[in-house]
Design a protein around this nucleic acid. Structure first.
Lengths: 213, 213
DNA sequence: TGGTTCACTGACCAGCCGTTCAGCGTGCTG
DNA sequence: CAGCACGCTGAACGGCTGGTCAGTGAACCA
């Protein structure tokens, strides 16, 4: 039996998705704290009450919105991470995926900045996240595992992989988000090459002979 | 005339400082959005009204608190940055200064995370910072200038210094803040060495011969 | 000692915003 | 076509919190 979606399910999914997209847009515009249910509803073209038919409360709305975007990001990066490839190729591919994702989801970045960390701002006042958001932590951890394997293969230096992952992810994300506020940025390829170079070889000038590949 | 502080001025400064410290503690505990004037007042051991004798409103309180902490951080880093030294020494010293600052001001980090960026959360709803906090941007810019000079001297590769600065600052800060939530961390010296290595030489394994110094 | 000043207090106010729910209209059914 | 079901609406509610200000008492002065 091909469980084809009933008409109601389709409508429901459409509603949920458009409310979530509106949520991201409003948060991108006003910031997490100033994004009101009223404005989200207007942005989505529904009444305030309608949102509560699909989400328990504001917390759940924001949380679910964050999670579904993070899932997409994660899928696109994991797809690259799980492929068999030399380490530098992987880094290049991950950075390209990240760059493309944030370019295609420009409204997501504020939500991302607000929720990834120890609680830039609590979602309203409940849910006292002491640590980072689990989805963020998972992402760092997964990346750390890849680094770990690269260390075992002797492709990179042997040091704390979790810290290394944090450094790379935060450093690269900062540049990628900076791009979003610029009028004119370098080409995506150039940017990826720049970031990859920074990660692999650092800032120091190599005297002539590069360890190319 | 040595303008020695009058008794009133001393008391006033003391009040201001203790209210600001209370502000940082409460924000560290509850997060920016959930930190109420009531709780800040209790933490400082004064009545709510008293805070308004020294700060116009909540925005000004938070802003001034952020700024005075950022000034300290900035002073400590600038002192290092302005010293004449080879580039790798400078990086080591800056990282050590940053590490020490956040270790000595553990309550500051949430305020820092909330205000540095495009507006993790607007300070309440006014002041619609489109870009990062000016103090943060200044810091990145100053660091970029140092990188620029190092490029001219041929100490590091020639690429966009502002992006390089962003990458280094965000990457290293992520590790330093991670330390604050750990039970047991490596020694500060080890950590500084680790971060410095990452910045200068990247993650790639060097085959034997290090360009030491 | 009586009077005056003024930093400080905290009960109170006003407005904002998340949440609710009685009612409406649309479309389906018999 | 009458009656029903139900998704949607938005006015109204209530709680919370930033900000106010009349009152208090300690310190100082004459």
């Amino acid at each position: 039996m091909v469980t084809t979606k009933s008409k109601e399910e389709v409508v429901q999914e459409y509603r949920i998705q458009s409310i979530q997209e509106a949520t991201m847009r409003v948060i991108a515009r006003k910031g997490m704290a100033a994004a009101t249910m009223q404005e989200i509803a207007e942005e989505a073209g529904v009444a305030k009450g309608t949102i509560y038919l699909y989400f328990r409360d504001r917390d759940e709305l924001v949380e679910k919105t964050f999670e579904s975007a993070m899932c997409q990001l994660r899928e696109q990066i994991d797809e690259v991470l799980d492929r068999e490839a030399p380490f530098d190729e992987k880094i290049r591919a991950v950075m390209a995926a990240q760059l493309a994702f944030f370019a295609n989801n420009r409204e997501f970045f504020r939500l991302y900045l607000s929720l990834r960390m120890p609680d830039g701002t609590a979602v309203r006042q409940r849910r006292q996240k002491r640590t980072c958001h689990p989805q963020y932590r998972d992402r760092v951890q997964k990346f750390a595992n890849v680094l770990q394997r690269a260390m075992e293969r002797g492709e990179i230096r042997e040091v704390d992989p979790y810290r290394m992952a944090l450094f790379i992810i935060e450093g690269s994300t900062a540049i990628i988000i900076e791009r979003l506020t610029e009028d004119a940025s370098p080409s995506p390829d150039g940017e990826v090459e720049f970031i990859t170079g920074l990660i692999l070889d650092g800032v120091r000038k190599r005297s002539a002979i590069e360890t190319s590949k």
